[in-house]
Structures are given as structure tokens and as C-alpha cells.
């Protein structure tokens, strides 16, 4: 049946081509992120929880240093430094004088939140895909949205969805949905 075989081949080729087209912009975006070795930004975060009757607001700065160092420094209304480097997560509360160091592997509720931003900043698509089903929409050079759905059931129980929005190689917003609540972070890259 030579005709049917060639027909199959054509179908597979078409599917592959479609896949490659869908992949290409995301890979282009990741390459653009990977080229940036360091960046800084300011953020405003808004947390909504079903147990609270109004959202909690906080602000601070984000800084990124390739290959794997990410720091989220909250300055108001509480002071807190969250630093991730390699597998280690350090959470410092200078006012309380507390400092916790833990391994990301042991914190399944925190790890995806960290990797959603860190792996994107690193342009590490493989790392992103280890934790999430990745859906990309938009233009890698212009406005885009990356919707991340956790792969593991245990993580999914805590975080249902993370959506990143951005323009070019800059993240402008992170929105995550967990339990009955939402966290929205608006990011302003520093010039």
C-alpha cells in the first residue's frame, strides 16, 4: 500500500511542522531570556484569600543573576528576603531575626512558584517543562502570555495555574491561582 504509507508520512510531517511552528516563538523567547545575565525590577504584589475580606498588598524588588540566583526582597509592609540559589531557598525576616534555609526539593508548594519565574528568566525551557505543562500565546518580541499548569498532582493541589505576562525579554506580571485565592504580581523592570 504505497499510497496509504505516503499519506501517513504526509500527515506526520504536517503535525511535526505545526508543532515546530508552535514551539518556535516560545523557544525564541527563551533564547532572548537566556541572553540576559542580570536584571532588576520593582514589584507590587496583591494576595487574595478566601479567608480574608480584603487583599494583602506588599512591594519590593526582584533581582536576577544568571545562571540560577533569584532574589525577591519585600520592603513593605513587612521586610523579607527570599533568595533562591541552586537548590537552596533562604527566607530571611530581618526584623524577627529569623532565617530559614531549605531545599527546594522538600518544598513542593514553593518550588513551582520559584521555578515559574526563575526558569523563565534563565530561558530554561526544559526546567520549566519539568514542572509545568507550558502554553504560549503572543509574540516573543512583543506582548506575550505564558500559562503554566503544574504537572504533579501534589503541586496541583496547592497551585492550580501560574500565568506570566510580558513584553520581549521582560516579565511584567505573574498571576497564580491557589486554593480559593489569587496572587497577582505587577513587575516594573528597572532601566
Amino acid at each position: 500500500m504505497p499510497r496509504r504509507r505516503s499519506c501517513c508520512a504526509a500527515l506526520i510531517l504536517a503535525a511535526l511542522a505545526r508543532a515546530a511552528r508552535a514551539e518556535a516563538p516560545l523557544e525564541a523567547l527563551m533564547r532572548a531570556f537566556a541572553a540576559i545575565r542580570a536584571s532588576r525590577a520593582a514589584f507590587v504584589e496583591e494576595k487574595e484569600m478566601p479567608e480574608l475580606d480584603r487583599p494583602l498588598l506588599s512591594r519590593g524588588t526582584l533581582s536576577w543573576q544568571a545562571p540560577d540566583r533569584l532574589e525577591k526582597r519585600t520592603t513593605a509592609p513587612i521586610e523579607e528576603v527570599l533568595r533562591v540559589e541552586g537548590d537552596l531557598l533562604t527566607l530571611e525576616r530581618p526584623l524577627q531575626g529569623t532565617r530559614q534555609v531549605l531545599s527546594l526539593d522538600r518544598s513542593p508548594e514553593i518550588r513551582p512558584l520559584v521555578e515559574a519565574i526563575r526558569a523563565t528568566l534563565a530561558g530554561d525551557l526544559a526546567a520549566l517543562r519539568r514542572h509545568y505543562a507550558v502554553a504560549f500565546e503572543g509574540d516573543p518580541a512583543g506582548r506575550w502570555t505564558l500559562v503554566l499548569t503544574p504537572l504533579s498532582g501534589r503541586v496541583l493541589a496547592a497551585v492550580q495555574r501560574v500565568a506570566l505576562t510580558g513584553r520581549g525579554a521582560a516579565i511584567l506580571g505573574v498571576e497564580s491561582q491557589h486554593g480559593g485565592g489569587f496572587t497577582r504580581m505587577r513587575i516594573e523592570p528597572a532601566r
Binding site: 494583602l56 513587612i78 523579607e80 527570599l82 497551585v159 491557589h178 485565592g181
Partner: peptide
């Protein structure tokens, strides 16, 4: 608790904090 919920560990805290 409220203080903790503002921080980065809030997903963890929310699970048992209430």
C-alpha cells in the same frame, strides 16, 4: 499569621495557618 501570609511562605501557611 497575617504577617506570615504577606510573605513568601504564604501558600504553606495558608494550608495549616487557619
Amino acid at each position: 499569621l497575617l504577617d506570615g501570609l504577606r510573605g513568601a511562605a504564604s501558600p504553606l501557611l495558608a494550608r495549616i495557618g487557619f
